[in-house]
Nucleic acid binder design. Structure first.
Lengths: 336, 336
DNA sequence: CTGTTAGCGCCTTCAT
DNA sequence: ATGAAGGCGCTAACAG
């Protein structure tokens, strides 16, 4: 199982030059106290031997791995892969490496991944929590191990953490303002599972929005789905079948919206004519669709990720920054 | 910069129990020669202290990091993020960690990322090469360092490597067969940059397909784009404006297709009526579109990734497997 | 300027 | 069944 590789070490360089390893070590990093000639000679031999410092030894010695972990429910979702992409960029600028973990929204998997990262001695973690994580048992563990963690997007509802998130409520208010200004009063909501904080937030924003415009809350206008395709379709079909069909629907996210669009197609309900959609944008391809939602509430995965990453690197340099909850105002983007 | 963390070590456990570190080390891994009682006592203390083995030390000692690198042009592209997701899964089953690098299709970045991974002493690398990498200068480096590498999707056109790719030509033949069977004879191709092997392969497949059906090759039916939105649009517009406009177009990939769809919309050319598309599938959302291509040549990112990952883990266990080029037959998927 | 020494945490012969 | 000792590759006091 051992690698057969016999990579050159500073020891060999030292032997070859009949000098000490410390001199080699210093020369290699241009330590000022080493003579120019020695430095040159060392570098030459290093070059010849194809020497490369053994990072694993350095990590070990420095007690630092120059590695951060990103943990997400799912890598392949556009929202998250956009985030990873940005974080990788920033990490790269800081000469850090990124290691990756997927939780599939399973709190147990999440715990495992975090423990694995802790074992790897990552210097920090960026986490978008599994949607139904309720206990953050890993927080004291990480705290204890001195590993800073920054949450983003799906963040615990508590003090004493670093978190970056988008303010969904503001987006919802804007959405309802827009719909009302377009003459809508029968506004429905297809929400996500009630277990999610994200769902609660949307619901509250929805209520507040209605209230602000003195619109009545029809309970049959509030649907919930577990985000599966079939449930998404059913939820939309129920709304379509209502005697007083809503004229506008706000949807939990773009994937729900895609299914809702299909439901409308099946029922011959014409989007942006018989019914109007406002969605939470996770889907970068609306501009290619014939019937996009009239507006999307942009959750800015890239921006969230960038802020989270910068915060993490700040924490790695300076571990005792005050806890902070950075809330990005989600922006309403009109597509029509 | 040093972490203040003072995590417990086997030494502390040893001191506490007044036994030697070697005993602790062995007890912790249930070495048969350690008495049951000692083992228990050791484990108990380890538990109490919240001991966790320092992986960086183990990596260092074992000369193995249980880490693999994935290097891709862009993490956020659906094709690649699907691949990452699968690879992360498999790595996880093998108790391996995944580190990530993006090249943005830049050969220099690619080289840097590979060097970084080499420094990290990853146990293996999975690489989808930058689209315009022509020299694979890193191969001897990795060879030398004993780091196995498996290419996937975008692979070097040479012997002596492990590669997984999909057979685009077969897909193209199927596509042309299908189009001809639907009565098309004016079949165009919007290809990618001629520098890409992937473009060449498509072009050859296209020629072969035409030939098979004794169709004439009209040079004006072959467009190329650098994959930018504007070039994609222009290419399609030129085809639309031809006096003998093609009745079907095969497109380099789905993103080109999306733009081509928009070009048609602008020009009031109705898709799946005035003109038909066959694309290479990188886009999982056609089922939600009103005017999808009539068929897609599926490149199976997930499958490619799974095979590549399995191959890599095989190589990590057994470094001298014969070189192999695994070609997946790309499947034509009809959407209409 | 350069060498000596010691040690990071763990594992592994080799003794006992 | 356990301990002692040495070393992985590199760095960083501390001495010269």
């Amino acid at each position: 199982m051992e690698k057969k590789d016999k990579q050159p070490t500073i020891k060999e360089i030292a032997k070859k030059l009949k000098i000490s390893t410390s001199t080699v070590s210093r020369a290699l990093k241009d330590h000022p106290s080493i003579g120019l000639v020695t430095t040159m000679r060392v570098k030459k031999v290093a070059e010849e031997l194809g020497y490369e410092p053994n990072q694993t030894a350095i990590f070990f010695k420095q007690r630092k791995t120059f590695t951060i972990g990103i943990i997400l429910p799912s890598i392949s979702e556009a929202f998250f892969s956009a985030a990873i992409s940005e974080i990788e960029h920033i990490a790269n600028e800081h000469r850090y490496t990124v290691i990756l973990g997927q939780t599939a929204d399973d709190p147990d998997r999440e715990m495992q991944v975090i423990e694995a990262m802790k074992k790897h001695r990552v210097d920090g973690i960026i986490l978008s929590a599994a949607k139904n994580t309720t206990e953050y048992a890993f927080l004291p563990l990480l705290e204890n191990a001195g590993i800073p963690i920054v949450f983003f997007d799906c963040v615990p509802n508590m003090e004493g953490v670093y978190a970056v998130l988008s303010d969904l409520k503001a987006g919802l208010h804007d959405a309802i303002d827009l719909l009302v200004s377009c003459g809508h009063s029968r506004i429905a909501l297809i929400n996500g599972p009630s277990s999610l904080p994200a769902s609660l937030e949307r619901y509250e924003g929805y209520l507040e929005g209605l209230e602000k415009h003195h619109l009545h809350l029809y309970t049959e206008y509030v649907e919930a789905t577990d985000l599966s395709e079939s449930r998404n379709l059913e939820a939309m079909e129920r709304l379509i079948d209502l005697p007083n069909r809503p004229s506008a629907v706000i949807l939990f996210n773009d994937y729900v919206t895609l299914d809702a669009i299909n439901a409308c197609r099946k029922r011959n309900v014409v989007i942006n004519q018989d019914i109007f959609f406002v969605s939470f944008a996770n889907f970068p391809y609306w501009k290619y669709m014939d019937n996009p939602p009239m507006a999307s509430i942009e959750q800015l995965p890239g921006e969230q990720a960038i802020i989270a990453a910068n915060k993490l690197f700040a924490l790695i340099d300076q571990p005792n920054l005050p806890y902070e909850r950075i809330v990005l105002k989600s922006k309403l983007v009109k597509s029509l």
